[in-house]
Amino acid sequence: MSQGPNMVVCIKQVPDSAQISVHPVTNTIMRQGVPTIINPYDLFALEAALKLRDQLGGKVTVLTMGPPMAASALRKALGHGADDAILLSDRFFAGADTLATSYALTAAINKIGAERPVDIVFTGKQTIDGDTAQVGPGIARRMGLNQLTYVSAIPSIDLEAGEISVHRRAEGGVQVLKTKLPCLITMLEATNELRRGSLPDVLRAERAEIKVWNAEAAGVEDLGKCGMKGSPTKVSKVFAPKPRAEKAKMITAEDGAPASVAAAAVETLLDADPRLLSVLTKQTTVA
């Protein structure tokens, strides 16, 4: 029997977007004490990998590129049941855009694969801070992995034959794709719910020593392709969106009765968008 698949899950630590706000008076960003979380999309990727490990055995390594504090995200992932964790951290990586990020991650994945080739790389669909959805495809391209984006299910995997088939969300439907390992999967959201680790898992996670690789340790060859230097895109300006000038206009009725309010609401909506009525009468089957 073959051993189970060797899997790498790329996760990113991101600021919890719910906690970021713009100061109404000074118009500056209030980032004080904003807690960080694992990019929520990556949790679906992690669970998909753990599920495969349940079925087939093998190993799940979580990988992140980020500042030293990103180690806490890895520790969390270990607590959910991942086997191993690697933090890619170096000042040369700072300010990376998607191209430079995928370059550094690729180096690290190759390094992880030096021991035993990596069969599947998982990423989330996108991050909530960058949300570009490009790092996954970037890694696939650089490593020459078969690229499977927006995967909603992995119905079969045959390690012997080195084949995998997946359901991929496409416009207007689901593609059933079959390809060869090694591959890269970006996992679609809401496809599963990340498991809670067991007590031994969290104890192990708390004690684990997180491996930290700098550029050299990760085997990065060209520092010019890392970080700010290796990023063709540059952020020239960050600003707060103009808040919507007006709050919602409240719809009321003199007698306050639900029926009267509802009738007023219908008219308000139809007045605001005259084309709505044609959409409605077109779509509505007689109910």
Binding site: R196, G197, S198, L199, P200, D201, V202, L203
Partner: peptide, 9 residues
């Protein structure tokens, strides 16, 4: 006992 699997210590 804690609210996790194998949760005794």
């Amino acid at each position: 006992k804690v609210d996790r699997d194998d949760g005794e210590v």
